[in-house]
Design a protein around this nucleic acid. Sequence first.
RNA 1: GCGGAGGUUGCCAAGCCAGGUCAAAGGCGCCAGACUUAGGAUCUGGUCUUGUAGAAGUUCGCGAGUUCAAAUCUCGCCCUCCGCACCA
Length: 974
Amino acid sequence: MKLSDTESEFTKIEKKWQRRWAKDKIFEADPDPSRPKFFLTVPYPYTNGALHIGHGRTYTVGDLIARYKRMRGYNVLFPMASHMTGTPILGMVERIKAGDKKAIEQYKRDLRLYLDTEEEVDAQLAKFTDPWTTAKFFANAISADFKALGYSIDWRRKFTTGDKEYNQFVSWQYHKFKDKGYLKQGDYPLLYCPNCGNPVGEDDLLEGATAKIKEFTAIKFGFKDGYMVPATLRPETIFGVTNMWINPKATYVWARVNGEKWLISEVAAEKLKLQAKEVEILEKFPGSRVVGEKFTAIHDETIELPILPADFVDPNNATGVVYSVPAHAPFDYIALRDLWEDPSSLEEYGISAEEVRGIKMISMIDIEGYSEYPAKDAVEKRNIKSQDDAEALEDATQEIYKAEFYGGIMKDNCGQFSGRPIKDVKDDVVAWMKSINRCDVFYEPDQRPVVCKCGTDVQVGVFAGQWFLDYLAPGWKDLARKALDEMAIVPELFRNLFEATFDWLTQRPCARKRGIGTRLPFDPDWIIESLSDSTIYMAYYTISHKIRVHKIKPKQLTLSFFDYVFLGKGKPETVSEETGIDPAILKDLRGEFLYWYPNDQRHTAPSHITNHLSFAIFHHVAIFPKKHWLKCISLNEHVIMEGRKMSKSKGNVIPLVEIPRKYGADVYRTYVISAAEPASLMDWRERDVPAVRNRLRRFMEIMNKYSRKEPRIYRKKDKPSMATRWLLSRVNSIVQECTTDLDTFKLRDYAINSMTEMIRIINNYLRRKDVPKAEREGTMAYVCDLWVRLVAPMTPHISEEFWSKMKRDGYVSLAPWPKANKRLIDSDIERAFDVVTATISDIREILGLLKDQHPHHAHVYVAPQWKFDAMDAIRKADVPLIAGNLMKVVMSNPEFKRYGKDVQALVKKIVKANGLWPHATNAREELEVLRSSAGYIQDELGVEIIVHSADSPDYDPQNKARFALPGRVSIFLE
RNA sequence: GCGGAGGUUGCCAAGCCAGGUCAAAGGCGCCAGACUUAGGAUCUGGUCUUGUAGAAGUUCGCGAGUUCAAAUCUCGCCCUCCGCACCA
């Protein structure tokens, strides 16, 4: 696709102003103690491909805030960088190298967005053999996209997370965690592909993408000179064990597991090897060999129980050994029942019918609504006949599991756990077994199949020595909560999710074995995970440009360098000795950090709350003093397309790069701001875009016509028309509302007020023929001056164009935000005008109902003053709206008594309307407004308007005058 | 399962926290009129139901409740979306 093919009508203006902004460096922000600062960040994009309109929403909102704050007089720093650490880029590059057709096609699609010919695309793709080239290409491409959308970014501070200098910064951060004791090492289970030898994430899976890891308790029942080891989700049921189940046809092993002898299935032994256990197979044999033998119970080793055969036991599931609790497990119950009924199959194992019939179910959990043997109840309720009815049995198992977990109590045959609720006791049973070395953990994926892209079955691997950030470390969470409490979250409704996340955070692996990133300084086998290298990096923006300017080398960026610059520790002279950096430069960097920090606002999408944003808060409180904690997090939801999720595979993704040339940056920006409030999902609807574009055209049309006239404010003494007074009032009200909207993050209201509503009132004003030309032009020029600045954060390019046409100094991007002139806001006029509008619609409605008649005159009767007074009296009294109450209020004033019946009618009306309605301040004003608007009403309706006072109507053949109410004139048409 | 957010008039989407000015903003779509050679654009009006006098009736997931008054507050129910950890 040629870039020049599809230029939008706005492209020329947009490019022109982007060039000038860059030339005059107006968004490059340096410390300036004379001005208040505002430091805004939006997370850097991940540069492994083209961005789409969804990303654009967040960056556009960020830019809108930056531009607004700039106009409010802040020294705004809005920087950007690019993210390339982690696995995605690496993964893609590997897939391209491997000749993966899908991956290549996907990259080609993205490249075609930026390159003109297929040859160029192929040539570029050929260079994508290392992640750096890829990341750099897209980082540059995305920067260009951002510039083309008019984002007011200070590009001098750009860096990538792969930079050596940045790695030094991340290293420093992790040294701090280590010093605080927040870093721990331990075992950690992950989905793992034995063939690739790597952990697998969602993107690496062919099947089972939603798989999670399930933790079983492996219980070591005494058997011969070792243990027989079933794995269970219900360890508390060991008190109800009656026998063991073994699949006689499957292969079992005696294996040495961490020095102990375990009997498990052969498959399970292989799995244990991946789970950080030392496993040596001692002997292989069919399950049938141990059937009929005895093992001992955990809670009482004098109890010997038999091992029985069962076909339902799957050697591939867990350890392939199952202990039987027939009273509480439907599978166990039915298998045992089958043997009771037909013990003949046991003969070959030397187990007699008497022996098996002698096995008694052991009830160990009390639960309301069930008999002694809940498993039996559940099976009978479903009328389950055989072990083969797996679905019904699964259902029964779920029922009992839930019922017992939430409502079950351990019976008094459960030793020290007797009498306690199941849901509380579970962990304690495990802890107790652990203390006597009778249990271990065994992991399985919670679903099957789970298949790696290489075609291999995925298993659970346990990484020994995995590094964690321990969010439970003493004091850390409390500090983070404190920071959250003091921080602004906008929209506020997202705070709940932060709080829930804080509650739920425990430990989190923070390093891994593959991907791009910073090596853990004290254990270089590990690479710091990319989410936790992106948490306090806002601080890095404050100095990144100067590191480059001063050509400071990575090895000079030592721990004491960062300690000094970010924490003020040490003396510049000492640090200079160590690093070789001039003390003056060090002081300057420290000054820059102190000027900009803290980060005043971080804007991003709520999907990051449960990870990156929460970590950002935790990491800030861990490293920085309170005055440098984050001040505010603002969020906007993501974007869907025509009511559907966007996804590359569906092909319903609009790349961000196409936006400026297809629609125009200002059109897109306006669309994005006005389509939905930040807290809600935005639905991109192609057919709504032209409507936005047309509004901008109308804006330009009006600006073209009036912006270059001589502005003049018509004050009361100039005796302007009512319409002009109304427009001046409305426009200034809107300026006020827009300011509030932006301050309270009601961005959609801002867009509607500043664009749609402004156009509406201006259209209305321009229709009024009673305004003298000079007055109209002067007033409109004044309005244009306010308007062009009001919309500048949203439509910066168009605004800039008119700002220069209006011969204003400098850039509108740096112009002061319009200030509402409160003296021009006249709520009386606005209310009075509403009466005119209401009168027009009333007459229109009546005209619509009069099908065959065509009246030429409309007699309008304005309510008498006493009715206004009566309404005011009620308003002031502020009593419940019951007719009696209201009557009392009005009648308490003797003046109203003489209107008896009419008062009653008025009160009835108010009760019916369930409240008071707006009207002019008094009868005189209402009369005046209507009289002065008679010509306008006439133009609108095509009938002659005669306004009367209801007190003394000149003409009232149908006695309509007495129905007139404040704000609701009475009308007679003829 | 646990946690979070929601369900508004054809569609999208405000309003709900601080109950009355709410038949409920704004946009899209649709209908009509003006302008125009025509189309597009623009401007104006209409768009829950009924109505030849400005009115009345029925609505904001469902069902109860609180209140003079509920889309808004309380309780119960139904349904939808999102997150749940190595994935940025």
